[in-house]
Design a protein around this nucleic acid. Structure first.
Length: 430
RNA sequence: GCCGAGGUGGCAGAAUGGUUAAUGCGACGGACUGCAGAUCCGUUUCCUGGGGGUUCGAUUCCCUCCCUCGGCUCCA
């Protein structure tokens, strides 16, 4: 959403999302399954990329893999060691010397003296100070490793990202995102590593830290392993409803996920929002956008014209997506009031009424045209069934009419009777 | 213990130093319907964690306490 908005506002955006494709857990799991850790990482990445595609997250320009940047990482570590900002330990690991970077802790508000060593992770031997962190991990037999001046090993987590961004984005860049849980130590470490390497500060102009998705009071996280709900969630309510759910709160706020209620609620809200758009598009698709008809009432012209401006204003207030969504609901309600007269309007007017929805499509990624359209088979079969049901109803055979509706429902097809006829909808079309 | 993010109606979740604190879900009532659903209209007065303070006025600013979540340096 941020990348979409910035691009709309004329910024040139190059969006990099780093992929850590080798870590302790991956190595352990791969050993368990008897496969190559990098292949396992590739499999995870593909699953992630597929889910993002289905969610309509297509703004990322490049997903660099950490292990493709080992030369850059080794080079950066070399510069840090040469500048005595880092040191090699006897076991072949290299540590960054936190004491040599006075700004350490500035981003997170932490004071180095106040940290509690070993709170969660065992303190390693070979460090000169407990707050130092590994940027090169000496090789363990049987695990992937690369040669380096300090012996074979693999990159530490923090340095991967800075080596990639120094190469891809330069010494300084504008925006860095991430979850609130990454501020310390990871983002703190990125700042220390990059600024110590290049001498240029600040590394990042703006940090955007997103609130956690809390599942039953606990953050949802790949580390805990309770993230499995993403694919089923997309499948159950569709990508649009899921995006609406995420965008329904300010990015910095934690959002409470209730497995029983959150997704159905998002689905209902999304359906309400999409309803007027579906009506408009049904007419335009049927008659074309140049269909003749009545002009739009002046007040509607004005409102439709002003809304995108208001939506941009809402979003430019620290990306207040909820405010924008509230405006969209207001527009949906406004259109509902005039739904009876839509049929008489000219195509040009209908397109004007659609403008706020076009904004939402571009910036929020909602209302994307069916990437998973109903199978052609359905499009042939369902109208036939509907006609049969209409005949059954006309002759008063409601048992047969209900049987047809039930049968279609079992296949996931929903029927809705309206004054003019019966509409049908396949699940997951949007 | 320290650092950070939060605490708003039944639920989710915005906003603001000032007349009725958005929006959505849910609930309730009505219209429509053979029924159901969807849709449309309306209602939902008692909601800003506790306690102090500043102010004519605080949900908003200050202090303090409580609660939830995250982090505390090789989990990423």
């Amino acid at each position: 959403m941020v990348a979409r908005a910035l691009r709309r506002w004329g910024y040139r955006v190059f969006y990099v999302q780093n992929v850590t494709n080798l870590d302790d857990k991956l190595i352990a799991r791969a050993a368990q399954e008897g496969i190559d850790p990098l292949a396992l990482a590739e499999r995870h990445y593909l699953g992630y990329a597929l889910a993002m595609e289905r969610l309509g997250v297509r703004s990322v320009n490049y997903y660099p893999f950490a292990t493709d940047f080992v030369p850059e990482i080794v080079d950066q570590i070399g510069r840090l060691v040469a500048a005595e900002r880092a040191y090699a330990a006897p076991d072949g690991s290299v540590y960054f010397s936190v004491a040599k970077f006075p700004d350490y802790g500035r981003l997170s508000g932490q004071r180095v003296e106040a940290l509690r060593p070993g709170a969660r992770v065992e303190v390693e031997k070979g460090k000169r100070a407990p707050e130092d962190f590994a940027i090169w991990k000496g090789a363990t037999p049987g695990e992937p490793s690369w040669p380096s001046p300090w012996g074979p090993g693999r990159p530490g987590w923090h340095v991967e990202d800075t080596a990639m961004t120094l190469r891809l984005l330069g010494d300084q860049y504008d925006l860095h995102g991430g979850g609130l849980d990454l501020i310390f130590p990871h983002h703190e470490a990125e700042i220390a590593l990059a600024e110590s390497t290049t001498g240029h500060a600040p590394l990042v102009g703006y940090w955007m830290h997103a609130g956690m998705l809390e599942l039953a009071g606990e953050k949802m996280s790949k580390s805990i392993g309770n993230i499995v709900a993403l694919d089923p969630a997309i499948a159950s309510v569709g990508p649009g409803a899921l995006r609406l759910y995420y965008l329904n709160a300010h990015y910095r706020s934690p959002i409470a996920f209730d497995p029983a209620k959150s997704l159905p609620e998002a689905r209902e809200a999304y359906a309400r929002l999409a309803q007027p758009l579906e009506r408009i598009e049904a007419i335009v698709e049927r008659d074309g956008s140049d269909r003749p008809g009545a002009d739009l009432p002046a007040d509607l012209v004005r409102e439709a014209g002003e809304l995108p401006e208001k939506l941009d204003a809402a979003l430019s207030d620290d990306f207040n997506t909820r405010e924008a969504i509230a405006l969209l609901f207001g527009w949906a309600r406004r259109l509902a009031e005039v739904s009876g007269s839509l049929e008489g309007l000219a195509g040009a007017g209908l397109l004007e009424l659609r403008a706020p929805y076009d904004w939402a499509r571009e910036v929020l990624g909602l209302f994307e045209r069916g990437r998973n359209p109903p199978e052609e088979g359905w499009a042939r079969i369902v109208p036939v069934a509907i006609a049969a049901r209409a005949r059954a109803r006309a002759r008063g055979d409601f048992a047969e009419a209900d049987r047809i509706r039930t049968e279609l429902a079992a296949a996931g097809i929903e029927l809705e009777d309206e004054g003019t006829g019966t509409r049908w909808r396949a699940p997951e079309t949007r």
